[in-house]
Design a protein around this nucleic acid. Structure first.
Lengths: 153, 153
DNA sequence: TACAAACCCTGGAGTTACTCTAGGGTCAAT
DNA sequence: ATTGACCCTAGAGTAACTCCAGGGTTTGTA
């Protein structure tokens, strides 16, 4: 089958499939005489594996690790467990941070429910005041900066 | 004060300050004869404003919007409120998705608590099986793909 | 006065996981 | 012969930084 068919069967974008191939998450398929990629059933399985892992929000490097365990099935699986644990801890931490964030945003939101001039808006006033070292509703309890930086966890 | 001092007083990285300047979130400061940036107290306030908004996980574009309200204080503040509402909705949605994700990961994690061969590892077996169209513990209830794509919300 | 340490500068590349575009080739049907 | 749907590559763009190379400046010490 061609890439478009694989895309349809997996629900994955064509561009993304090509991207995964370049990233080493999918083996390079055979090519037709005109250079079109030709996929077999195994490719669908491998792509689905990647997509399933992605739906669990695993980064591509970790998916590559899991693939190496598929390739070497007699390796000890401790690292797989550790990988999951790490992932779970990360998600857990993010949930906590998000809850804090939500509370902060709601507190800030509560400062203005009218349509007034910006200079009278409780939200903006609070932000400006905080920037000048004053108190702010959103960071009232010292829960600041809990958020993990998204790019490097 | 020089950039290093501003960095220390704000708790922000030097590189990040330069980045914010380039991104138009901080006004270009005066320069010393040798080209060093010279900051005054106002700059600290403006930088803190940005940092505070960032600690609430606002994207830079929205911070720029808020700044325009600071610059034009007689504009109506409805957009500020809407901005917050949008932000809150986003966070709320993410929390929900994260909870689902956590449950999925925990279910998967539960499939293996030993250190066995990878081919016997319940986690890996489950992932492989799912890729082949079988059932999986993690996506048992049809809550798949709830996660918002991080790059375009 | 010579030198080192600590600071500052710019421009550009790297990070993640894609997405999109330009510019072009292939294939089946009309 | 041409249309439309499909395929190809290389490269740029996204968010919010971070890091690097390669260089200049300032301050303190020997």
């Amino acid at each position: 089958m061609q890439i478009g068919e694989l895309a349809k069967q997996s629900g994955c974008d064509v561009e993304t499939i090509r991207y995964y191939e370049k990233a080493g998450l999918l083996p390079k398929p055979a090519r037709s005489p005109s250079g079109y990629r030709r996929y077999a059933k195994e490719h669908l399985g491998q792509l689905n594996f990647v997509l399933h892992c992605r739906s669990l929000d695993m980064p591509l490097v970790e998916i590559r690790t899991l693939q190496s365990f598929q390739a070497n099935p007699n390796l000890a699986c401790a690292e797989i467990n550790a990988l999951l644990d790490h992932q779970i801890a990360r998600v857990h931490q993010q949930i906590k941070a998000m809850h804090v964030l939500e509370k902060q945003l709601l507190a800030l939101r509560d400062r203005c429910h009218d349509n007034v001039m910006a200079s009278e808006c409780g939200i903006l006033k609070n932000l400006v005041n905080a920037a000048e070292g004053g108190e702010c509703v959103c960071h009232a309890d010292s829960n600041e900066h809990l958020l993990p930086t998204p790019t490097q966890p």
